[in-house]
Design a protein around this nucleic acid. Sequence first.
DNA 1: CAAACGTATAGATGAATTTATATATTTAAA
DNA 2: TTTAAATATATAAATTCATCTATACGTTTG
Lengths: 106, 106
Amino acid sequence: MQDLEDELAKQLWAIGDVTRLRILRMLPDSANCEHGNNVSQIAEKLGLAQPTISHHLRVLRQAGVVQHKKMCRDCFYWVDRDAAKDIIERLGQLLGGDESVEVLGL
Amino acid sequence: MQDLEDELAKQLWAIGDVTRLRILRMLPDSANCEHGNNVSQIAEKLGLAQPTISHHLRVLRQAGVVQHKKMCRDCFYWVDRDAAKDIIERLGQLLGGDESVEVLGL
DNA sequence: CAAACGTATAGATGAATTTATATATTTAAA
DNA sequence: TTTAAATATATAAATTCATCTATACGTTTG
């Protein structure tokens, strides 16, 4: 239970950053590299240096929020759907009390 | 849209802390002071100083995650249900893509 | 093989956060 | 009114974080 709480806190903290939120919005929700941006493209679109984006992606990766795969020279990232579902479920239970179960339809 | 993103990041960041997560678990989901702990009781149960808890509650309050009310000498806090619902909805849209709408039943 | 490209890592710096101590404010009780 | 209790605020010290620059590593291409 303690570990779950630490993990949830880590995940929420990782998501709770404007830059990382913007990165997440640019990522596909599956390993579909056709519609994904590589790290440098994300950096350019957000007006930040490439190592900065790489750092934030690492934070998201270590929190288990995103997955990544290297294709040729590029690295593509996408949102881990199972992790996302877990986060939303736990957050609902934590914040919404009993009613969250209804809202989430779980 | 920018403001909404900033607000969401702030709220998620506020929740993404182990101490604040533990505090939230102790708060009722409505202004029901009968089942709530005051600030000092929370501090004692978590083994932290009262000003520390007061500080964290202030963070949660400024993020709009909790509401509070002074009863006699004590302050009682509870989770803001509307804010909680907003957070979960937005997070679902952000992380889950289109499917989140189904998961959330919205 | 060498040059170019994409990414990750390391080091440095300024800013923000956490925690505790001390002080102040408000409220209830004696 | 005086005293005690509960909470909030201010300050300070240590830690942590976001960002940048520079560099290293692996891969592709000429």
